[in-house]
């Protein structure tokens, strides 16, 4: 039962490790950005899971004493999503410029052209 109760966290850690692995293991620059996105998304889920109160409802205008979920983690994650979108946009923009400059977005081919990355 404990394992099942922690279902959300299992998903979080599965996504986190998947994303992290993709960032490290893939040589394609766009794939790395995708991996980074999966990695960040797992954190969004982590925050949202912790805000949930069992049996709680949405925190809008309620009768006194009604049980509601903690809205603060959701607000934090809205900010983090915006940051994540900005990071993705900037990363993809860099990939476009790299493609223009090198003609490829594969890490090993860029490495062969000059000693960077």
């Amino acid at each position: 039962m404990v394992l099942l109760g922690q279902f959300n966290y299992w998903v979080v850690f599965f996504l986190m490790m998947t994303g992290f692995y993709v960032v490290i293991a893939r040589g394609n620059l766009v794939a790395k950005i995708v991996g980074l996105n999966i990695f960040q998304t797992s954190v969004f889920l982590l925050y949202i899971s912790m805000g949930k109160v069992a049996g709680g409802t949405a925190p809008i205008v309620l009768a006194d004493g009604a049980l509601y979920s903690n809205p603060l983690p959701h607000v934090l994650i809205l900010t983090a999503i915006v940051v994540g979108v900005a990071t993705t946009a900037l990363g993809l923009a860099l990939v476009v410029r790299i493609k223009e400059a090198y003609g490829t977005i594969e890490e090993d081919e860029i490495h062969a052209k000059d000693d960077s990355l």
Partner: peptide, 27 residues
Amino acid sequence: DRRSLTAAYQYLIMGTIGATFFIIGVG
């Protein structure tokens, strides 16, 4: 230099991993 692009990309990846680790901790 065109290598500034790959340098920025590499920093973006590592910096974002660092910042994400940080918010996991804060969370």
